[in-house]
Simulated scan of single mutants.
Amino acid sequence: MSDLPLADLDAFTAVAQERSFRAAALKRGVSASALSEALRRLEQRLGVRLLNRTTRSVTVTEAGERLLERLTPALGDVALALDQINSFRESPAGTLRLNVPTVVAMTFLPPLIGAFLKKYPDITLEVRGEDSFIDVLAAGFDAGIRYDERLERDMIAVPIGPGEQRYVTAAAPSYLADQGEPLHPNDILDHTCIRHRFLSGAMSPWEFERGDEVLRITPPARLIANTVELEIRAAIDGFGIIRTFEDFLVPALAEGKLVPILEDWVSFFPGPFLYYASRRHMPAPLRAFVDFIKQNR
């Protein structure tokens, strides 16, 4: 059995870990049918069933669990050995997978990764923008970008992007002409607002700061959405007050489509961090990205 194709063993590991051909295919960048064919070949060569498949689920057999237990560290060693060859290349190669918040993906990250990809033409970058808080390593990412209060303690954190950001409150001129301008955060309770709901279902209260004074309110909502573009469009159209990252609102504020309000109640907070696991050997694409970030701060 020593001549078993490494690619078929890797395919089995991917499907067994994900418990899904489709999820494993997305993660590997191949088709689900290709993985299915690899599993068929492997099971035929071994003469034993490794996975139980139905139209709704994939489960690992006892034999499959035994194989997965031994294969996972072995394939990890193979990947590490191959990646170490990168140190002999003129330019590192491979895939770098990042998980980032939506605000990062929409604001400062695009020009940053553009410069990075130009510098490292042999690196493929995969970026997923989402606002749910997940274990990025368990989900197959090499690193994540998060704000300080969401960083895991056993991670290395490197500042990335602006050192400070802020939340601002704004409304359309038409809304303020019809409803008046709130002069204090508590006045917002008498207005209609546009609020953001995270994919987790959470909808955070609005927090205002002025000096040492901190106020948290739960404003009445005219619109609740999880799409920033939709929320900003609704605010521009005069359907309510919006409070969000200043970065999102800069174009609308610059064009006068939105007007800042409660400017003495702006909340400042530290910028985001790139974070990754502490380990002796870092994959070459991640090492290149970390070095690039440090050089361009």
Rank of each mutant, 00 (worst) to 15 (best):
A32S: 15
T55A: 12
D135N: 10
E62C: 01
Q17G: 14
K27A: 15
F116K: 00
D135M: 04
E37D: 12
E69M: 01
E62M: 07
D10M: 14
L35C: 01
F108D: 05
L39H: 02
A23M: 07
A14E: 12
E130P: 09
V48L: 15
V15C: 09
A63E: 15
T54A: 02
R41K: 08
A74V: 05
L9D: 11
I134H: 11
K27G: 12
S36Y: 00
V136P: 11
T72A: 06
A105Y: 07
E69P: 00
T102V: 14
T95E: 06
S87D: 13
V103R: 06
E37A: 10
V15Y: 06
G114H: 02
L9G: 12
L82G: 09
R45V: 14
R66I: 04
V136M: 09
N86V: 05
L109Q: 00
T61Y: 02
A16H: 09
R128V: 15
R19F: 08
E18D: 11
P110I: 03
R89T: 07
R19M: 07
L137C: 10
G129P: 09
E37S: 11
V104I: 09
T61C: 02
T54P: 04
R49V: 09
T55P: 08
F108S: 02
A105E: 11
E69R: 09
A32K: 11
F21M: 03
K119T: 07
E126F: 09
A16C: 08
V78N: 04
L42M: 06
D131I: 04
T55K: 11
T107V: 03
L82F: 10
L50Y: 09
L82P: 08
P110L: 03
Y120G: 00
F108R: 01
G94D: 03
T59H: 04
F21Q: 00
I134M: 13
S36R: 06
G64V: 00
V127M: 06
R49W: 05
E126H: 11
L137W: 14
G29W: 01
Q84L: 15
A16S: 13
D122H: 10
V104L: 05
A105R: 13
D122L: 09
A93P: 04
V100F: 02
R22E: 10
F116I: 00
V104Q: 06
D122Y: 12
A115I: 03
F133E: 14
T107E: 05
R41P: 07
R40M: 05
L9V: 12
V30A: 05
F133Y: 14
T95F: 00
L82H: 09
Q17F: 07
Q44G: 15
A79R: 15
L50Q: 10
F116W: 00
R22C: 03
V58G: 02
E18Y: 08
V78W: 06
N52S: 10
A23C: 04
D122K: 09
P73H: 02
E126Q: 14
A74F: 08
R97F: 00
F12I: 13
E69C: 02
L117P: 00
P73A: 01
V60P: 05
T102C: 08
L51T: 07
S33C: 04
A138D: 12
D122Q: 10
